[in-house]
Amino acid sequence: MPPKVNVVSLVSIGRHPQSGRSRRAEQDGRAVELGLKLSKKSLTVVHAGDAQEPVLRQYAGMGLDSLTVLPQPADGDALPILVDFLKSSKAQVVLTGVRAESGESSGMLPYLLAEQLGWPLVPRVAEILTIKQGAAEVLLALPRGQRRSVIVSLPFIATVDNAAAEARQTAFGPGLRADFKVLDVNSVKDEAMATWQISAAKPRPKRLKVVKAKTAADRMKAATAKPVGGGGKVMKNETAAEKAQAIFDLLLEEKVVR
């Protein structure tokens, strides 16, 4: 793998599901891990938010020499400053978690970034196998441990699935000593968010479990299954026009395009 690939991992402040305390976010940690595996030297880890947040030291403790912070207030919009940063950064691979553990947690950020930058988005990556000649071979994580190999041209944005390698242990010393590059950026207030009313989510009632399985193997399958979309279709051999038509039909069907 050429060491020249510029990888940027975007990290956010996670939230522990039990204690509600700030922590290294599960998927963002995996994004850093994947970045470290691709190229330790040319990895840039970026956080848009408060540079004083102690959790950032937990990311740095994974062995980062430095961590870039784009400072912005709690009500700021991360999107425009990240777009500006990525445009100027020569980034070729941008890794993020699928969705943040705190804040809006909409999972939209990578999509909006990809849209504004005009880059392809690769969702739910399990592994990046190779990067050569301006293209990367990427394994997508599918339900039940299945993988799909796709080739995507650089630059691209990828969200990192829970199936990717677990984040390495964070070490106190290196985290403490890591250098924080706090850039000077204009923060943009998130006007939309200011109008929202935020309240704690109620836990959704759990669906009653109806055991239909007859055999242990069936029960195992049922217990381990991730929900599978029924209508999915893999098109490999069709022409580009046919593939585009299929996507367009789907968008119409789902009423995304009217």
Partner: peptide, 23 residues
Amino acid sequence: LTLEKGETPNKGAQVLENIIATD
């Protein structure tokens, strides 16, 4: 090994992470 290398074996890393996040 733990504070500098981050190499606590087996469940060590997870236990330490839990202790930090949930006491």
